[in-house]
Amino acid sequence: MKKLAFAAIAAAAMMGQAQAADLGVRRVAVPAAIAAPVFNWTGFYAGLNVGVGIANTNFSVLAPGFPGSGSGLVGGAQIGYNHQINNFVIGVEGDLGYFGVSRSAVVGGATVNWKTTWDASLRARAGVAIDRTLLYVTGGVAFADLTLRQTPAGGATVSGSQTRVGWTLGAGIEHALTQNWTVRAEYLYANYGSKIIRSNNGGVTDPVSLQEHKVRIGVNYLFSTGPSAVVARY
């Protein structure tokens, strides 16, 4: 009887240890994937820009001693639309702004002045998006004004102005600070060819060339950044 009782107690103890061992195993939670939204450039946007512009003409060749180049402040606004396909971004943008370059000199006793006051463009954009950073090139049609004024000593002022149409090319980089706000830096070159300027007294000049360079920074507000992709990050 003692042997049977001892065997029963030993069996019960072994079963208790087995159950305790089972209860002691802790389940380890599997870390869940964290879904992080990837920035998407698709959508309409609008913004402002400011920078420095350089205008080049051939006035120094047409009238020796007369300045043919000048620099000044540029600034304005832009509006556009982007569409992203995988990492590629295409779009269209239009801008209009102030282009403040003016030069003057005394030539042959007369005070001569030329200036540009505004420019605009309608351009296509294409680039590669690296998440929140966009590298792009741009090009299209450009518009600008050019005015020539001459005041002879003791005489009446003669002036002529025209709106030029040309082409423009450039490149830039844009970065999204938030889901809706971006900053950018870009360079644009515009060429308006050579054309005569007709004055208010019926006179004409030799063909006058005009090219522009702009380096500017800007800020944009994206009204919609489109459907955001989701990437699982662990």
Rank of each mutant, 00 (worst) to 15 (best):
N180K: 12
V92Q: 08
N58P: 03
L73Y: 10
A142E: 01
K214I: 07
F88Y: 11
E186T: 13
T163C: 07
A29Y: 01
G76H: 05
W114P: 07
A5S: 13
K195E: 07
R103D: 08
S121F: 04
S199Y: 09
T117G: 07
G155F: 06
W114G: 10
I217C: 10
A229V: 04
T225S: 15
R216A: 10
A171M: 14
L188M: 11
Y45K: 10
N87E: 11
T57A: 01
A77L: 10
L148V: 11
V52M: 15
N200A: 11
A63H: 06
S199R: 13
G16W: 13
A156D: 10
V204M: 11
V107I: 13
V89R: 03
G43H: 09
Q17N: 05
G140H: 07
V141F: 05
L73M: 09
G172R: 10
A105Y: 06
A13H: 09
H213Y: 00
F44K: 04
V74W: 00
W114V: 12
Y187L: 06
V101D: 00
G203T: 14
N180F: 04
G16K: 14
V52C: 06
A32Q: 07
T178Q: 08
A46L: 07
F88S: 04
V52S: 14
G68F: 02
V112N: 11
G70N: 03
T138F: 00
A63V: 12
K2S: 14
D95Q: 05
V208Q: 03
G94I: 02
Q84W: 05
T151K: 04
R26P: 00
V89M: 07
T157Q: 06
G172M: 11
L73V: 09
V231W: 01
V137G: 15
G16I: 14
A153G: 07
G139N: 06
A13L: 09
V25D: 08
N201L: 14
V101L: 01
R123Y: 04
Q162N: 14
N58A: 01
G51P: 03
A153P: 03
I197E: 10
N82P: 09
D206V: 02
I90G: 10
A8E: 15
A129P: 01
A20W: 14
D119W: 01
V230D: 00
Q17S: 11
Q19Y: 14
G202A: 00
G51C: 08
K115Y: 13
S209V: 01
